[in-house]
């Protein structure tokens, strides 16, 4: 019983950590209509950007998260402008945008190697104290994991406020909902695309650095969580931000709960099972509107 409760606590915290990059992935999909797999690379570069600010400039880890946002956002915009935008233009409406998706997989490999070239493979750590778990009854909770979840929550709230209450956010939603209509209204879709890409890259970078807090930093950081992140976004429904959050909790909880019944070595397989179950019931995910 306690084991189950503990798995739920762990799963919720793991889900919160997954949610940030999953939102990044789904935001790009919502606005630009393609799966940008390079979010894994944005997470890695963001984590390194924050690390430079934290360890080289001596800025405390939490404010240094801004460095991660800037690095991740910049990486996202550069990759999009240089490698993906041209391919996106060739996609006919209604068609799945596979060429930019493939290019983004290649971009992930490229970014991983940019990090490797600049920083090497040696594991790096943030200048951040570590805490013992708090014990609440029989349950253990990590203060750092709680703080990470709180930071994730702040970032998500900021995104919701941005989308709901700013002009740029509203135009972004308009483009996401109906690109044709938005174009008629004279909205500059390219500019909106850039803002969305930057915002998503910033979130991915933030998510990457939060992962780095609990692990150690190396060029494969983003790659390690990639499959769970994509699983979360797909479960929730590509293009739906609330869906990505829900999906992240489904995958996070699923992976932790599964360790109670299956060999922990198969945790990743649980994400995949979650996708199959959800998609066989709802082919466009939990919150997805667009069907096949």
């Amino acid at each position: 019983m306690i084991a189950i409760a503990q798995a739920i606590v762990n799963g919720v915290l793991a889900g919160a950590a997954l949610a940030v990059p999953a939102i990044a992935f789904t935001t790009i999909f919502a606005v630009l209509r393609f799966a940008n797999f390079a979010v894994a690379g944005f997470a890695t570069l963001g984590a390194y950007g924050g690390w430079l600010v934290n360890t080289r400039l001596g800025v405390p880890a939490v404010p240094a998260l801004l460095g991660a946002c800037v690095a991740g956002g910049a990486a996202a915009v550069i990759v999009d402008e240089a490698a993906l935008k041209g391919l996106r233009r060739r996609i006919r409406p209604g068609e799945a945008a596979l060429a930019p998706a493939i290019a983004s997989v290649a971009a992930t490999l490229l970014l991983e190697n940019v990090a490797r070239f600049l920083f090497g493979n040696d594991p790096q750590g943030y200048d951040l104290p570590v805490f013992r778990d708090w014990h609440i009854g029989a349950l253990a909770v990590g203060p750092q994991q709680l703080a990470d979840a709180a930071i994730a929550l702040v970032a998500m709230t900021a995104l919701f406020l941005f989308l709901g209450f700013t002009r740029a956010g509203r135009t972004m939603r308009a483009v996401a909902d109906n690109p044709g209509l938005a174009a008629l209204k004279g909205i500059d879709a390219a500019r909106v695309g850039r803002i969305a890409t930057f915002a998503a890259g910033a979130l991915a970078g933030l998510g990457g650095m939060l992962i780095g807090f609990d692990t150690s930093l190396d060029p494969l950081l983003g790659f390690r969580v990639m499959l769970s992140v994509f699983a979360a976004a797909v479960v929730g429904g590509l293009g739906s931000i609330p869906g990505a959050v829900a999906g992240a909790f489904v995958v996070g909880l699923g992976e932790e709960m599964a360790t109670l019944v299956v060999d922990p070595a198969y945790r990743t397989a649980v994400g995949f099972a979650a996708i199959l179950i959800v998609l066989s019931l709802r082919p466009a995910g939990l919150f997805g509107e667009r069907t096949a």
């Binding site: 945008a97 976004a233 797909v234 070595a265 990743t268 995949f272 998609l279 082919p283 667009r290 096949a292």
Partner: peptide, 22 residues
């Protein structure tokens, strides 16, 4: 998975490969 649209299919099949490797 055949009913899924392209992007979904890409991710599900990526997961298939991962599970086979596991």
């Amino acid at each position: 998975t055949a009913r899924l649209r392209g992007d979904y299919l890409a991710i599900v099949t990526l997961g298939f490969a991962e599970v086979m490797q596991l």
